[in-house]
Design a binder for these strands. Structure first.
Lengths: 238, 238
DNA sequence: AAAGCAAACTTGTATATACAAGAAAAAATT
DNA sequence: AATTTTTTCTTGTATATACAAGTTTGCTTT
């Protein structure tokens, strides 16, 4: 990446420290250099250093302790990942089959898309896919996913039947979920849903609309899902 | 509320502005007073004002626009906080009434408690309360809460009708949610639920079981809730 | 050796100031 | 009247400094 001359000092500091933490130069529990040391290194003053550290706190990279210093903390992993669980235990890979109803394809955003899109996002278009997850042979979760199509070359060729979407995004494109928001409803299965999930019309179905920000600017993942929670349930961490 | 003399200026500013936004003095889309105006009002300097505004951004209360000002936006509450939203906008404090069905009381953990408890937690016992939230007069969310009873003196006396549980825990006991886990179902309203939430038996109801770790060791908050999502929905951030 | 104390760190809060850059309003020009 | 320019107001970035307060270290005293 070409660094612009006008990049603010505090932003340089943020990316430098982030990189060093990601690369393992500073590990979990390590103490970062003190604010005054960072001032010397970057030839700047404490308010500027603190501005950078505040951002790292927000991102979950560090915690600060009064009188002690900045301690590297675990970057939250698994954030935003939903898993299907049974009443006794988790659902293993053997019992889970993913059926692709619509292969990953480049399209334009739907006209009635329920989230506001930035100009850049609209311009970029999106990748769309629809999947149906079967647990022990039972269709349980229907999910439609929209991903901003920014800098994801050849993403459509990945086989998302065997590997999870988030795994693939992370492994091949270094995309990480930073934060997200979800809206949750309990709805009645209409005719379409009843057919998809093989339940009777009127059955309670869990419905979620989710938007997830990533470490890549403008790359947002949107997910709309319906889940039959009769036998299993949805679990997530925050 | 008794204000301590040593409260930092920026914290006063945060709570003042938060209050004015919550109370509707500043509405969504409104422009907050400029940083310089706030400096005059609070007899302080821009860095201090900006420290407060940064926190309000983090909390989702405002967005700042270079050259324009600070614009009030919909507050996204903190980690683990669930909020009830309507299809058009958030549910304001005016429209939300909290009815206490079981006052905060010290008890032992239920025998059939669905989460594993550590020895220390079992020993400590728990505080229990049950609440029913009405939105625009409609009973919408029934919630049972269990809190490990560790170092929370006189917690039972707080009035949780007017103030949120998390606010109270944070304000008076400096308890913060660090991380959590939630399980989600869509269930059918049984007779009991139907009566509580004033719906017909069989209506789809959102059910969640949540456990939340705090910054205090062993202090875990458990919440079991049922929500009628016909008119409103549940929203959370991660 | 152990306890208590002081010094030397650390981050937390705050003042005062300066200039850059984006946005909007006012003034000047066409 | 419409357009352009200027001014003014806004937030963004940064320096320099000061003292408060929590934590650790090492010294001093017992």
């Amino acid at each position: 990446m070409v660094k612009e001359a006008n990049t603010p000092i505090y932003k340089t500091l943020i990316s430098d420290l982030k990189k060093q933490i990601d690369d393992g130069h500073y590990k979990k529990g390590d103490l970062l250099p003190s604010e005054n040391e960072l001032c010397k290194t970057y030839n700047t003053t404490r308010p500027t250093v603190r501005q950078a550290l505040s951002e790292l706190i927000r991102l979950g990279y560090i915690v600060r302790h009064h009188g002690k210093g900045s301690i590297v903390s675990e970057p939250k992993s698994g954030l935003g990942i939903l898993s299907i669980k049974g009443s006794t235990a988790g659902v293993g890979k053997k019992n889970l089959r993913t059926q692709i109803l619509a292969k990953t394809q480049k399209t334009t955003w739907p006209a009635d898309f329920p989230y506001e899109l930035s100009a850049i996002q609209s311009e970029a278009g999106c990748l769309y896919l629809a999947r149906l997850r079967h647990v022990n042979g039972l269709p349980t979760l229907y999910e439609e996913t929209y991903i901003t199509d920014i800098d994801l070359p050849r993403f459509t060729m990945h086989n998302l039947e065997k590997h999870s979407l988030f795994e693939t995004l992370n492994k091949y494109h270094k995309v990480e979920i930073k934060e997200g928001e979800q809206k949750i409803w309990a709805v009645s299965a209409d005719k379409n849903l009843a057919e998809l999930l093989a339940v009777k019309t009127g059955k309670p179905i869990l419905h979620m609309k989710r938007s997830m920000q990533t470490n890549r600017p403008h790359l947002t993942i949107y997910s709309f899902l319906y889940c039959n929670t009769e036998e299993y349930f949805i679990q997530d961490y925050f």
